Simulated assay, not measured.
Amino acid sequence: MKGPLFYSKILLFGEYGIIKNSKGLSIPYNFYNGALKTAKELDTKATDSNKSLLKLATYLSENQKPDLVVFNTDKLLADIAAGMYFDSSIPQGYGVGSSGALVAAIYDKYAENKITILENLTRDKLLKLKQIFAYVESFFHGNSSGLDPLNSYLSLPILIHSKDNVETAGIPSQKQHENKGAVFLLDSGIVGETAPMVNIFMEKMKQDGFRNMLKNKFVKHTDACVDDFLSGNVTSLFSNIKQLSRTVLDHFKPMIPSQFHALWKHGIETNDYYLKLCGSGGGGYILGFTEDFGKAQKALKDYKLEVVYHF
Rank of each mutant, 00 (worst) to 15 (best):
M1Q: 05
G3W: 00
P4E: 05
P4I: 07
P4Y: 09
L5S: 05
I10K: 01
L11Q: 09
L12Y: 00
G14C: 08
Y16L: 12
K20D: 14
S22F: 10
P28Q: 04
Y29D: 03
N30A: 11
G34P: 15
S52N: 05
Y59M: 09
L60N: 01
N63F: 04
K65R: 10
D67F: 04
V70H: 01
N72V: 10
T73I: 12
K75P: 14
L76D: 07
G83R: 07
D87I: 04
I90P: 13
Y94D: 08
G95D: 08
S98I: 08
S98R: 01
S98H: 03
S99M: 02
G100H: 00
I106N: 00
K109L: 14
Y110A: 11
Y110C: 13
E112K: 15
I117N: 10
Q131C: 08
A134K: 09
Y135Q: 09
E137C: 13
N143Q: 13
S144K: 01
S145H: 10
L150M: 04
S152L: 13
S162P: 11
S162E: 12
K163W: 05
D164A: 15
D164H: 15
D164K: 15
D164L: 15
V166P: 07
G170F: 08
I171L: 11
P172C: 08
K175F: 09
K175C: 13
H177N: 12
N179W: 00
A182Q: 11
L185T: 08
L186E: 01
V191W: 00
V191F: 03
G192V: 08
M202S: 14
M202P: 02
G209M: 08
F210H: 06
L214C: 10
F218A: 14
K220N: 10
H221G: 00
D223T: 09
D223E: 01
D227F: 02
D227C: 02
F238R: 02
N240L: 01
N240M: 07
K242W: 00
L249V: 14
H251T: 12
I256P: 07
P257I: 05
P257D: 06
F260L: 09
A262S: 14
L263K: 15
W264G: 11
I268P: 09
T270R: 03
Y274Q: 15
G279S: 08
G279K: 09
G279M: 13
G283P: 12
Y285E: 07
L287E: 04
G288S: 02
F289E: 07
Q297W: 00
Y303K: 10
L305G: 01
V308M: 06
Y309I: 05
